[in-house]
Amino acid sequence: MIFDEANFSPGGDRYITVEFGNEMNLELNFMAQGLAGALREAGTKGLVETAPCFASLLVHYEPRDISYGDMVTELKSLIGSLGSTDEIELDSRLFTFETLYLDPWTKECIDDYREKLNPDKEYDPDFVARLNGLEDRHQLVRVHSSSEYWVASLGFWPGLPFLQPLDPRAMITCPKYNPPRTWTPQGAVGMGGSASSIYPVATPGGYQLFGRTPVPIWDPNKRFDAFEGDIVLFRPGDRIKFQPVTRADYDDAERKIEDGSYLYNIVEYQRFSVRNYQSWVNKLDKSERF
């Protein structure tokens, strides 16, 4: 549900969790990001930093500069000034990532898991397709690559995006691995619950895997200008499009990444209007699939 009024709770002596609701609804994330922007602009005394989560905003403040009660009052007033969710507009960059769906590396990873941990584990793309009533793994690729994805929040690993499809016709869900995998290739694309993600580095993991991108989203050596001096690529409110490519295109992109000549495909001139988004969504027949 979406709460009528935001819910505030103290997290220890220096954090506040502002919850807008408790369901997987993008509107809640728009509110969290809208409030983060309003706080930045207000320059509230005692504010340290904010971190949007899917349906809430974590506010870090300095309790010696502002009390919990005064911070809550300030947050309520800012939420009031935001108006309805429709009014929220957010800067939003669009990233396009070459993605090799049904790739050999995640297949190898799944095979390894089957061999060592769970022989009954169905091949992830077939499993996710079956669970969501899709024809086969090829329709999963069509459906998954049909939508832009919204960077709702980042966490678990520096720069790891928590993604939701903006097109409701691309909404699919699946459970996470149980037990989790001990390794996942860097750049693996997969999902758990309704969230998609890209693995920034090779780590253990629990998402169902069905593709891989060669494009780094984590750059501790700061080789690429796209990171603007940072080591992580994304910010909350960015959008990502997975572009299905052939193995030859994948290898070509990988070569360019290795020699440093790779050009990130980033569009920066757009603003995301919640009103425009909602009116588009309302026109769609959500039962349709690509």
Partner: peptide
């Protein structure tokens, strides 16, 4: 500080 929204601890 300032990294929490990017997942940077």
């Amino acid at each position: 500080q300032g990294g929490q929204c990017l997942g940077i601890p």
